[in-house]
Design a binder for these strands. Sequence first.
DNA 1: ATTCAATTTAACCATTTGGTTAACTACAAA
DNA 2: TTTGTAGTTAACCAAATGGTTAAATTGAAT
Lengths: 207, 207
Amino acid sequence: MVKPVSKDDHKTEEKILEAAKDEFMKFGLYGARMQSIADTAGINKALLHYYYRSKENLFDKVFEGALKRYFDQMDVLEDEALSFKKRIFLYIDHLIDFLEEYPHVSLFIIKEVSVSPEMFKEKMYSTRKSRGKKLYILLEEEKVKKTIANIDTQMFIINMQSMCYYPFIASPLYKTIFNLSAKDWKDISNVKLKKAVKNFVERTLNI
Amino acid sequence: MVKPVSKDDHKTEEKILEAAKDEFMKFGLYGARMQSIADTAGINKALLHYYYRSKENLFDKVFEGALKRYFDQMDVLEDEALSFKKRIFLYIDHLIDFLEEYPHVSLFIIKEVSVSPEMFKEKMYSTRKSRGKKLYILLEEEKVKKTIANIDTQMFIINMQSMCYYPFIASPLYKTIFNLSAKDWKDISNVKLKKAVKNFVERTLNI
DNA sequence: ATTCAATTTAACCATTTGGTTAACTACAAA
DNA sequence: TTTGTAGTTAACCAAATGGTTAAATTGAAT
């Protein structure tokens, strides 16, 4: 006797969110198709509207989740037990591993921010508050301020993040231009990139 | 007597292309609306199909133009009269000025490449050929190879380009996070960024 | 077994959107 | 003046798409 498939293990609501995540990440709010989400989730289109009122609302839910994960990898920056150098090096490792897993997330968030910066601001603050985290701790900590006193902190953050994020955004371009296999690219975008960013940070901060 | 407006100064075809450029850059192939393009160009929607067969075709034309401009700023890399350092510094200046003017172009190209890498490859090579340019001259020149012998050339290019391109892609994010006025951001993304990238190049290449 | 609410579906609907058609206009050549 | 061609338009059309509805199904509580 086969055990009857007593409902799904994962509730429909979850499946929808998962399918929506893929679709929205790849195609954005405009490009995403409700039918495609329903198909991926293996359910009827009307169910989308049953669980999530509208396309915009579903998108919001996906966006919130992405934003949460986006900030999650910053936790290590607050681990007081580690030295500044270790913290920032771990942050780089986590960030690049994270981007390998979710290469679309940064662009997804950027696009959303450019559409409605106010909404993003709200969501950003509420996410920070609810998890008790400081976002740009690098800018705020006294001992760090001392360490990097003679460099432009904002520019430093922008440079470091650029080096981490951009390769994943532009990976189709680089794969094409450099004629790279998936394996080659993985080596570049993980091993080599981590080394390069750490090197940059080391030299810039003199640590 | 008012001189009769003997046809438009700019032909309709041009106006369409200009309007299409704006629309496609901002919203991509999916998000762009033919009606919106027609409105911006101040003409009837049917004219779009009269001059450019279909949406895809119009998009292609815009894309080709963007690709051309995208490669244009690399000309300076081939000026044999300049030292390597001057060439690469000028390239940085040109690139960042260019990005200030067309902040959407890099993302636009990346998105298009990810949809159809083969098409991009073709267009890339034909653009290079028709203008007799080498794209990644940095990788090919003997004396440069010598200069940067002990660093990973691909990684270097990726790092440098990341530092240049990403801030413009992520500008909505940074403006929001750092609470910057348009003026503040311009200073960061032009003056300070140029300095930072040059600094990075100088230290990395030991020049 | 009945009830009742939560879940799911097929069939629609209204709007948007890319694209077409047939007619009209301007203007240069014959 | 007539004719022919390029340019332009309003009015449509078919498909796609987000969204709605009313009916069916399920499953737990009574």
